[in-house]
């Protein structure tokens, strides 16, 4: 049977990108332990609206852990205290009655805050636009089995392709580095024959865009791997570095 708990929330409120933000305290009363974290925020927002207070803005879409829209830093953990979980899949049974819960947006200069917990992750789109694709200029898509792909390579490519682009890696990284995201997007293609023709140009262009967006570099703290809801491995960053080294000596 579900029970209810009361929490003290301390939430980052920022009306617009230009205005300075600050923490505000709210009570979350009578929260079902079966509720998700976002449902808890919905309940709190209902209460705020009843008192004519601007509800807490947060990103969300599928609420089933696959779209990458949601995310906030809860008590210092990106996506909250449970590992391999998006914020929408975090349940209130992970909290105790009377807990103080500090909720902050992803903090990185590459992710400017739009409002409250909502950040602009356009930087990720621009990194993909720089080279995170395979160009096919003619004909139809070939049959899936027409190109032989070794099973281990296919497995690793699928693991890298699990990335939902939520930005938790950047949020958790002490350097606010986007290396894990960029590496996963490079590696999912570099591992497959379809990705090979453009591999050198791709890694250079995507890394250049990553730098341009103001993200830091990777100094191997492994915080990204611990925060990633899809358990993307630092091994992808190793592979990105290998791709980059290869591109440095390539002629194209």
């Amino acid at each position: 049977m579900s029970k209810t708990i009361n929490l003290k929330l301390r939430v980052w409120r920022q009306a617009s990108p230009e205005q300075a933000g600050k923490f505000e305290d709210y009570d979350a009363k009578g929260i079902s332990t079966d509720a998700s974290f976002l449902e808890m925020l919905d309940v709190v927002n209902d209460e705020l609206e009843r008192h004519d207070i601007d509800p807490i803005a947060f990103d969300h879409d599928c609420r089933e852990g696959i779209c990458g829209s949601c995310g906030a830093v809860v008590n210092g953990c990106a996506h909250g205290p449970e590992s391999a979980t998006t914020l929408c899949q975090l349940h209130m049974r992970k909290f105790k009655d009377g807990d103080v819960v500090i909720i902050e947006p992803w903090r990185a200069n590459g992710f400017p805050i739009i409002k409250d917990l909502v950040v602009d992750r356009g930087a990720f789109d621009r990194i993909i636009q720089a080279g995170g694709y395979v160009s096919i200029r003619t004909g139809q898509a070939p049959d899936a089995h027409a190109i032989p792909i070794p099973k281990p390579a296919a497995d690793k490519a699928m693991d890298a392709a699990q990335c939902i682009g939520c930005g938790a890696c950047v949020a958790a990284c002490p350097n606010a580095s986007a290396s894990l995201f960029t590496a996963a997007k490079i590696n999912q293609l570099a591992l497959l024959p379809q990705g090979h023709p453009e591999r050198n140009r791709r890694v250079v262009a995507m890394v250049e865009q990553m730098d341009k967006e103001g993200f830091g570099s990777c100094s191997k703290h492994y915080e990204c791997e611990a925060a990633c809801p899809k358990e993307i491995k630092v091994e992808n960053i190793t592979a990105m570095n290998r791709e980059y080294r290869r591109a440095l000596i390539a002629r194209d």
Partner: peptide
Amino acid sequence: HNRKARSQGYAIETRHGRK
């Protein structure tokens, strides 16, 4: 460069990585 990538820090800094 890395320090400049996050001008506003978190209220709570926690570590979960294996390093």
